[in-house]
Design a protein around this nucleic acid. Structure first.
Length: 297
DNA sequence: CGAATGACCTGTGAGC
DNA sequence: TGCTCACAGGTCATTC
């Protein structure tokens, strides 16, 4: 369920255990997820120390002490969980109650955390749309999965001018343009719906149509950029959002925001102040879009 | 090149 | 209870 905020939340959950930890061994329980695992996957990880854990768009990046980067993606249903390993206690961790069956536990990392003790982190993914890959030392920026990603929707990079430049004369609907990871990287179906609602823009408008010919003080592109950043920042702050089978890295469910302004709220009143619209569901390029036809134009 | 479609895979909830 | 169907937060490959 992971869009950027969920991946960032996972990163923050994993970092205290993974960063500085030595990888003792890795269990790989099947030959592939969405793609085959890299050659000698477990062999290249065993014995390495994790220098840092970062994120690019929806990719989680583990930087190893020999320069190798482990790239992982959660797909639609992937999750990580942390468990104590052996009899040692890992400080601050971690239940493994969760009557979750282990059927879809595909990869297990056995770690010696910096803080001491033993931990294991487990990658679970029922639908197996997730995957793992390596970027060789020095090749991360040009990696096929990473190199063509667009702007991060966090921080100051994303503003109205950038959106105007990206959208140009594109005829694709706003919804499709915002989902295109080559333009902005990290938005998914939920946060695109939410951002368009916040910006008051209809999802089926051509992306190019919101680019002002001669700009007023605040253009539609400015509003949209601000809305995207706010939606993402709020979600990261809330610890990400979850539905159904998403599991927080430390197993803490119920931590997340479960309600959205328009996403999955077909037929409900638009929550915007003084708007009497009703949330509509339409299908764009095969995926549900939720929006308010009254205040999104 | 941009845009639209199907494919990948399992689980869940709704409706009968 | 059990069956079938529609649908699910992502990306890639193929086609026009």
């Amino acid at each position: 369920m992971p869009e950027l905020p969920e991946v960032e939340t996972v990163r923050r959950g994993l970092a205290p255990v993974m960063e500085g930890a030595r990888i003792l061994s890795v269990e790989q329980r099947r030959p592939d997820l969405r793609f085959p695992f890299p050659a000698d996957f477990t062999g290249r990880l065993a014995g390495r120390r994790v220098d840092g854990l970062s994120r690019r768009a929806k990719y989680l990046l583990a930087h190893l002490d020999d320069g190798l980067t482990l790239i992982s993606h959660l797909g639609m249903s992937g999750s990580w969980r942390i468990e104590a390993d052996g009899h040692d206690n890992v400080p601050g961790q971690f239940h493994h109650d969760r009557s979750k069956n282990a059927t879809h536990d595909h990869v297990v990392f056995h770690l010696a955390p910096k803080a001491g003790g033993r931990a294991r982190i487990v990658f679970n993914d029922p639908r197996r749309f997730g995957f793992m890959a390596f970027a060789e030392s020095g090749e991360l920026a040009a990696h096929p999965l990473i190199g063509k990603l667009g702007a991060e929707p966090t921080g100051n990079m994303l503003d109205g001018a950038l959106l105007a430049a990206l959208f140009g004369n594109r005829r694709a609907p706003l919804k499709a343009a915002l989902l295109d990871q080559r333009l902005i990287a990290g938005l998914g179906n939920i946060y695109v719906c939410e951002a368009l609602w916040r910006a008051g823009l209809a999802p089926d408008r051509a992306a190019g149509s919101i680019v002002a010919k001669s700009g007023g003080p605040t253009t539609a592109c400015d509003r949209l950029a601000a809305a995207i950043r706010a939606v993402i920042a709020d979600a990261i702050e809330a610890g990400g959002s979850s539905l159904r089978d998403y599991v927080h890295a430390d197993g803490a469910l119920g931590y997340f925001q479960h309600r959205f302004a328009v996403y999955d709220r077909e037929g409900e009143p638009c929550p915007k102040l003084n708007c009497d619209g009703v949330v509509l569901r339409i299908v764009q390029s095969g995926r549900s879009t939720f929006y308010c036809p009254s205040c999104q134009r």
